[in-house]
Amino acid sequence: MSKYHPSVRASQNRVSLHDEITNRIIAELEAGHVPWVQPWDAAAGTAPLAMPENAASHRPYSGVNILILWSAARDRRFSSQRWLTYRQALAIGGHVRKGEQGTTVVYADRFVPSDEKRRVFETGEEAHAVPFLKRFTVFNTDQCVLPAEIATTAPPWRPGMIEPTVEALIRASGIDFRIGGTRAFYAPAEDYVQVPPPAAFFEPINWHRTALHELGHASGHASRLDRDLGGSFDTKRYAFEELIAELCAAFCCTSLGIAPTVRHADYIGSWLEVLREDNRAILRAASQASKAADYLLGFLPEITAVPSTSQAGANEELAS
């Protein structure tokens, strides 16, 4: 019999899983790969621009799972951004090919231990749920034999929809969005976004990427998602909010058919510092970025092809 209580073992597993995910992201950044920048090469036959989704349920993965699956698709040169579990493959009339190695993603939730239930019953006080983080394995559709209607990749976005969709999102959001000046920024105190005119950008598409980054910041206002935006420049809190905005822009860009890029490459050093000090930081940042992306994309209900980034997968901030 183990000398450790089950809750101790669960805690150790949770910590090791946090470390495993964080170390994976750190390794990507140190190798010069930014996981939320387009991690595919369509010319080389790898996965097309898309948010990762479950091939059986069609529900998108969220938070840090997006980064894990994008990296896996790039590293293993998969032609699809669709995934499913071993059992799901069997349930839809297919199977995973023999010898295939899956990709580990995570699921977070809370539970109330039996001791806590007894305490609540005796005292009538509110129960304190314990967060847990669980790993499970998914396989890319390239690794499976599936029915034809499941294996077929969804058609790509029409290029003509990109710019009008972003502009419509800006209008529908109701956020005070100003075009002009020479800097792109969000002013929390006055609650407005300002971005230079498109003509000021070397590539016009970068205007849309920048706009989505700044809108990501604006989503955190107290009247919206109420994030802590109080960090001053060059602090860890500021770097963490920049990481959220970068991920939010990447998730929005991909959902709208725009290849994401690093808008603020000079922050990579500060992101690495945050990740090395806190093995839960990337999970919290990715989870909050998913919420921010869902908030912004939610202003376009008529665009039915734009999925939520947090309907499935991990709810990582629960594991903090």
Rank of each mutant, 00 (worst) to 15 (best):
A265H: 11
Q12R: 12
F111W: 05
P131W: 00
I21Y: 04
Y295Q: 03
L272W: 05
P52G: 09
A312P: 00
G174F: 10
L67I: 12
G124Y: 02
E302L: 04
R135Q: 13
V138H: 12
L229S: 03
L169K: 07
S2H: 07
P164G: 10
F139A: 08
G102K: 06
E100H: 02
W36T: 10
Q12Y: 03
F121V: 01
D278I: 06
R276E: 15
F299E: 04
P197N: 10
R118N: 08
F251C: 06
G174V: 07
A319M: 09
R276S: 12
I21D: 02
I162M: 14
G230F: 00
S290R: 09
E163D: 11
A250E: 08
Q143M: 13
A151K: 14
C253E: 09
P188L: 10
T152I: 13
A222Y: 05
A129S: 13
A151G: 00
S232G: 03
W70S: 12
L243Q: 10
A305K: 11
S62Q: 08
F139V: 10
A127M: 01
F177C: 08
R263M: 09
Y267H: 14
A199D: 14
P196L: 06
P156M: 11
G257Y: 09
A73P: 07
F233H: 12
L133W: 01
V274C: 15
P147C: 03
P52K: 09
R9L: 15
A44P: 00
Q194R: 15
T22I: 08
Q143W: 06
E317N: 03
L17M: 11
N206T: 11
I179V: 15
V105L: 00
P156S: 11
A289H: 12
A73S: 14
W83L: 06
A154R: 15
Y86F: 15
G99L: 12
T153P: 06
E203Q: 14
A89K: 05
S270T: 09
D75P: 00
L247V: 12
P164Y: 08
S71N: 10
V64W: 02
D191K: 08
Q12V: 05
V306T: 13
A108F: 00
E241F: 05
A31K: 12
I175R: 06
W83P: 12
L90K: 15
V274Y: 02
G160K: 12
R24W: 08
H5P: 02
Y61K: 03
R77H: 15
R14V: 00
L169Y: 06
A289Y: 11
A218M: 08
M161I: 09
R276G: 03
S57P: 07
H213W: 05
A108M: 01
S308V: 01
A293F: 09
D191W: 05
H208S: 13
D191M: 07
R59N: 07
S79G: 15
F201I: 07
T235F: 10
F136G: 01
N13Q: 13
R284A: 12
A91P: 01
W36A: 07
V262C: 11
G180C: 09
L133Y: 02
L225M: 08
V15M: 09
E100R: 14
G231A: 05
